[in-house]
């Protein structure tokens, strides 16, 4: 197997807030292989976006960090801002949720592309730049006749595709896409998902796709990492995780998704914890239907449940639970109102 293009080791990103440190990302280890698409799912407030930005070395002001984000043998968190900026584009790309705010309304689409290409590849000729840009746009379904138009002449879906094309025109090694289709309509979303799914065949770009929609994960991702309260509780091939989730949180999240085949509503009791003072030990234990006494007292081990899959849960290390702590956890029932 190839070496990962990007690997996170015990990454922690804590925000400062008046009440104390917000542990948005708290001990995440994850690998991105060249050309693969990894989905990052979880409820809001679980640290998905913080992790996504942290992967690119974009830390919010006043955030502390530990661990490493190694990319081509270097820790991105230690690199100077100036150098990091020059890496964004040719090495690291980002696709945001709201495309309109990222395009300059006074610049033609062609200017956006040519500017990006000229900054990062100064030797590129005008003709070459044009061809590369049009090729990238074609791949995203933007007709070449519209190359000279301004951003406002495009619809929301087209702008998002232009943003994706713009992020990919330099062929970066890693792209983070933060909810790229959330603001879009179903049919347009499907078009973009198809484009993203095609990407992994045509490019070597590794894509970290942040989403709350498990349908998108099943559709467009090779692997998936399920995040809860700042930690990746389960990761593995998208097919396996979406068909046979091994962590109770992944299972509950999947069950609570309303899809066309839903015949019965299901929801997870309670709400994601306050990340300033998360619950001790396993962070999911207050909401977990399978919680045991040990879950509230000792950190669950990270177990490989099958090749390429890891799950952070005591259910997969029952042989190591201290004697007397296997019984179900006694706790007060959560009121219906204690929800997210």
């Amino acid at each position: 197997m190839a070496d990962p293009v990007l690997s996170l080791r015990d990454l922690r990103i804590w925000y400062g807030a008046e009440r104390g440190a917000v542990r948005a990302v708290d001990g995440v280890s994850l690998d991105l292989m060249p050309g693969e698409t990894v989905g990052l799912v979880g409820e809001s407030g679980c640290g998905k976006s913080t992790l996504g930005r942290g992967v690119l070395g974009l830390l919010p002001e006043g955030a502390g960090h530990a661990g490493e984000v190694s990319f081509k043998g270097r820790n991105l968190l230690d690199i100077k801002q100036r150098e990091l900026r020059s890496m964004r584009g040719p090495e690291l790309g980002m696709i945001f949720q709201e495309p309109m705010t990222r395009l300059n309304p006074l610049m033609r689409i062609s200017d956006h592309f040519e500017e990006v290409l000229q900054i990062h590849e100064p030797k590129i000729g005008k003709k070459e730049a044009r061809n590369r840009s049009m090729e990238a746009l074609r791949g995203m379904g933007i007709p070449p006749t519209r190359y000279k138009q301004y951003p406002h002449e495009f619809s929301g879906g087209m702008r998002q595709r232009i943003m994706i094309a713009l992020a990919l025109v330099l062929r970066p090694a890693v792209v983070v896409a933060d909810e790229p289709t959330t603001a879009l309509d179903v049919l347009v979303e499907a078009q973009i998902l198809r484009i993203l799914a095609d990407l992994r065949r045509n490019f070597d770009t590794a894509l970290l796709l942040i989403t709350h929609n498990l349908g998108i994960v099943a559709e467009a991702c090779d692997r998936v990492a399920v995040m809860y309260a700042g930690r990746v509780v389960e990761q593995g091939p998208a097919y396996d995780v979406t068909t046979k989730p091994s962590h109770p949180y992944s299972r509950e999240l999947l069950r609570s998704t309303i899809s066309l085949s839903t015949t019965e509503l299901h929801s997870i009791p309670g709400a994601p914890p306050d990340l300033v003072s998360p619950p001790p030990a396993c962070r999911f234990h207050p909401r977990c239907p399978n919680a045991m006494a040990v879950c509230a007292q000792q950190w669950p081990p990270t177990e490989a449940t099958s090749p390429g899959r890891r799950s952070e849960c005591w259910l997969h290390a029952t042989d190591r639970i201290p004697v007397g702590l296997e019984q179900p956890l006694q706790r007060e029932a959560l009121a219906a109102s204690e929800e997210a």
Binding site: Y15, A17, R19, V22, A24, E43, S44, G45, C46, G47, K48, S49, T50, P60, Q97, D178, E179, T182, A183, H212, A271, P272, D274, L275, V276, A340
Partner: peptide, 10 residues
């Protein structure tokens, strides 16, 4: 918890 909005710190 607003789905879709970026996860911001409280």
């Amino acid at each position: 918890s607003v789905t879709g909005a970026p996860d911001t710190p409280p």
